[in-house]
């Protein structure tokens, strides 16, 4: 009984207190972001010489100010979820956070930025 009341209060708290994600500060995190991008670059270059036009445009969009910000948001979420995964009892959690929303925000921006310019580059 008592534990269910505590759960209830916790849930109420979760509803009203948002997870805080900071986009501006934390120099560490933005370094992480750069590293990730670099890794992606290397992978692609290993695979093929002629790069896909859509990927190129999306990468260009990722390096715009808004793209960087959204990517940073996503990475921060990914890091948070990673940390949650390492905590004991993660498997039994009723609600497991995922980064789909952050990923969608980033992808949606990349799409809207790259899509209008793509077909002029294709035959």
């Amino acid at each position: 009984m008592l534990s269910s009341i505590i759960d209830y209060v916790e849930e109420l708290k979760d509803q009203f207190v948002p997870y805080v994600a900071k986009a501006e500060d934390d120099v560490e995190d933005s370094n992480d972001a750069d590293e990730d991008e670099d890794e992606d670059d290397e992978d692609d270059e290993d695979e093929d010489e002629a790069k896909d036009q859509y990927d190129e445009l999306k990468e260009e969009c990722l390096n715009t100010e808004k793209g960087k910000e959204l990517h940073h948001h996503y990475l921060e979420c990914a890091e948070r979820v990673q940390k949650q995964k390492e905590q004991p009892g993660y498997e039994d959690l009723e609600h497991k956070e995922d980064c789909v929303e952050e990923f969608f925000h980033l992808q949606h921006y990349l799409d809207s930025c790259a899509a209008p310019r793509l077909f002029s580059k294709l035959k």
Partner: peptide, 15 residues
């Protein structure tokens, strides 16, 4: 009904 369940909306291309 979450964003994930809807799927990401595709952008418009110059067909």
């Amino acid at each position: 009904m979450t964003a994930a369940e809807h799927g990401l909306h595709s952008p418009e291309f110059d067909w």
